[in-house]
């Protein structure tokens, strides 16, 4: 399902004729791959493997990977372990607050298929139904070496310009929103306005709007930014 939809993403033709621009793009991509700030959302047991990966034993900073605190600063959302439905709301909120290009790495089998929580009523089984996941590192739990080699794979894909599933969230927002609504109810809304964001950054795709976004619009609290203004704008009379 996901793979078929991924193939539908229109491939942006690289501009030809200006070699300087291409070199510049390559440089930016290279820098992106060599500087990854992680936000780790440690919801389960997998967190235990991250300290050795970061500290003196394996030292991820060699690869330019360092932990960050707030989603605004981060490039990678590292989700280790099972995601309960309550937590998933926060994970989605956090994901939407990150600046693109952003990557999601799911660690441990729980994020792949629910793992040992397969039968739990309170756990979201497949992470990639709710947000595009760039990389799964399976295992229960994967060792730090596995984490690092996974991240290296992600770095290669970023360098080659293949890791662009973050665009999928904008282009197929309706699909992800639908799954989220199924889980959290019809009045589900995050503070980030993905649709206007997609319009603003020209990331609209065929699947951005659909029946689920229409449902969202019916009850959505307005999220326009506070624009600076001198004059008076009267509120429309509330019936």
């Amino acid at each position: 399902m996901v793979m078929s939809r991924l193939q539908k993403i229109p491939v942006v033709e690289e501009k030809k004729g200006n070699p300087l621009a291409r070199v510049f793009d390559d440089l930016v991509r290279f820098c992106r791959s060599r500087s990854l700030f992680i936000l780790h959302y440690c919801t389960g047991c997998g967190a235990i493997e991250l300290p050795p990966a970061m500290t003196s034993r394996f030292d991820m900073e060699r690869l330019g990977i360092q932990p960050m605190v707030s989603p605004r600063q981060a490039d990678i959302l590292l989700i280790t372990g099972y995601v309960s439905i309550k937590t998933l709301k926060r994970v989605i909120l956090t994901y939407e607050q990150m600046g693109s290009p952003k990557y999601v790495v799911g660690i441990c089998s729980c994020t792949v298929n629910g793992g040992m929580y397969w039968q739990s009523y309170a756990t979201a089984k497949k992470l990639d139904e709710y947000m595009p996941v760039d990389l799964y590192i399976a295992g229960c739990m994967p060792r730090p070496e596995a984490v690092i080699s996974g991240l290296q794979k992600l770095m290669d894909r970023i360098k080659n310009g293949e890791a662009d599933s973050w665009q999928d969230y904008y282009r197929n927002y309706d699909y992800y929103l639908g799954n989220q609504q199924k889980l959290f109810g019809e009045d589900w809304q995050t503070p980030t306005d993905i649709i206007t964001e997609a319009k603003h950054y020209e990331l609209m795709g065929e699947g951005t709007l659909g029946q689920h976004t229409r449902l969202l619009e019916q009850h959505q609290q307005p999220l326009e930014a506070l624009e600076m203004r001198l004059g008076h704008k009267l509120k429309e009379p509330v019936e």
Binding site: L27, V28, F30, C31, R32, R34, S35, T55, S56, D59, E61, R62, G64, D75
Partner: peptide, 15 residues
């Protein structure tokens, strides 16, 4: 630890 590579500050800023 070993620490970041030489151009790391530049990578960060460009990224």
């Amino acid at each position: 630890r070993i620490g970041p590579p030489f151009f790391q500050p530049l990578y960060d800023i460009v990224k």
